[in-house]
Write a protein that binds this DNA or RNA. Sequence first.
DNA 1: TTTCTAGTTTAGAAAATCTAAATCAAGAGA
DNA 2: TCTCTTGATTTAGATTTTCTAAACTAGAAA
Lengths: 320, 320
Amino acid sequence: MISLPPLRALQAFEAFGRLGSVTAAANALGVSVGAVSQQLRKAEDAAGIALLERSGRNVVLTTRGRKYHDRIAAGFDQFRSAQGWIERLNTESVLTLSCLPSLASKWLGSRLLDWQEQNPSAVVRLIGEDAEPSLDGDQVDFRLSYGRKETEFDHWAKLFTDWVVPACSADFLSRHPVKSPQDILDCQLLSIEWSGDQGKASDWATWARSVGLDRTQPSGLVAFSLSSAAIDAAINGRGFVLAQLSMAGDDILSGRLVTPFDLRLRLAESYFLAWDPAVLEKPLGAELRKWLFGLGRHQDQMVARLKLARTGATLAAGRP
Amino acid sequence: MISLPPLRALQAFEAFGRLGSVTAAANALGVSVGAVSQQLRKAEDAAGIALLERSGRNVVLTTRGRKYHDRIAAGFDQFRSAQGWIERLNTESVLTLSCLPSLASKWLGSRLLDWQEQNPSAVVRLIGEDAEPSLDGDQVDFRLSYGRKETEFDHWAKLFTDWVVPACSADFLSRHPVKSPQDILDCQLLSIEWSGDQGKASDWATWARSVGLDRTQPSGLVAFSLSSAAIDAAINGRGFVLAQLSMAGDDILSGRLVTPFDLRLRLAESYFLAWDPAVLEKPLGAELRKWLFGLGRHQDQMVARLKLARTGATLAAGRP
DNA sequence: TTTCTAGTTTAGAAAATCTAAATCAAGAGA
DNA sequence: TCTCTTGATTTAGATTTTCTAAACTAGAAA
């Protein structure tokens, strides 16, 4: 193995070559001139050839010394670049969350704004995307997703479990005053296309079966690829949506959506939060993770306390 | 200015990342495991982020640690490359001489072979070229040239002063038995085209003037671009050449060329030897320089002792 | 000439690095 | 389960390196 010369001597040599004088190098390195002088001699001894030409009171690189210096300096440039990278990591701390698009817009977005207000020093980026990103790069710190995808991550935990319930706008309900769950199935139904393995557990047919009804022939059915779009359509009086309590919770509590029957269907899987362990070192990284899990617990509790009725939804008193 | 982390710590970190274990790194660096362990901790402290993941008895790089390591390792690779370059300089020592082509073939070549025989460990390269090379690279160690070109070099000294004298083959002389210097000018003259500023001091017209003759109308004149080619042509009985004593000395002493009159013309300039100061550090570099200057002195002495006559040339006894 | 500047050299102080031994943690084998 | 082995960490103190301060040298400038 090639054994390297004393590194401190190389450093003195690099500084000297870059700055052109022993005095300047000493200042740059924060040591005395004598120290640099000694290290330069050591560098020459280690190299075995004359690197410097001393003519009385000033010192210059020899031709070969210059060449050697070029190579050594390239090495130190690498070090400085590495150092710059590290320092950037330590100072500019953007926290990046990746989240399923509908959940991002209908649930996480507004809540995350609250957190950022309480932590003004934090810079948060929220990305809505279906594909699971890699948490190994420095691109994404957190991923909030659903189902079995958790296997793709090293560090994750369950966030909350969601439910669906049929909901429509108050206006639509007054025009279609459904008397029984069966009547819902005869209205305009807004359907959501779940992608891939998110399971087809929460479509209208499954819901119907779960409440003891049979729905073989669909009435006019409009399909949305985004839950959020389907919910918005329902708010606009376009029909019944099988709304997730997470995404539609705010709309239901505020009366923009009403739920004639409290017939909920639990989703087969849960939402989970995965994270890059490195984020815990970032400023506010650990705090954000804690807050997100608090948000998940809060969501589960909210669902448990939610009373749904044709006249409006209310929250029962819960544990503080 | 970006201040670098402790270099020794970086070195330990680099070795660890490259070899995958603290023990291996310690062996590679030739220190104890404990020392490496301490340096690794120092590297982490300096970086400010977790570089290593310790799970009981084994340690691995974190994702960020790997990235940091890649950059640091690139720096050390530079160092190793620089070290390899230095070591190559110190071990493989080829001595390279650049010389005017004719002087190389007719004078230096055979003499240099003698020196190499006496110094079998030396590897010598002789390059014949007209253009002055740079001695700043590591390509050429010595340059042997003529005239004012010495100004292009930092380190040089006069080598010897040359003279020209008319010479032809014994055969040619018997066919053209010249009685006086004037008769020479009526024979076939072999001329040499000196390039650029080497001076036109040594052409036939100059020689004629120097011996009190006038040569306005040239007889049939053949011009060579290489002195060596002109001399060879004279040896082959093609005419008179204005031969330099350095290049034709051997031929004159051996009788391949004869000189009817000892009417010499001193060249306006001298030959000089320039060198790269770095060569003095190479094995045998200083010796070769000393020998070359000895050769120059020897040449001047030889010229002083040389007796030229129609019947043949002899060397007067000189200082030993 | 003296003075100033830039670098070198030295001895001893300060800091860093290292070693050796004790300790810890986890997996292997009885 | 307990013990053994392996690989890493931690400590105290020894060793080595590096540094400083001050004396010194050499060339340039006043």
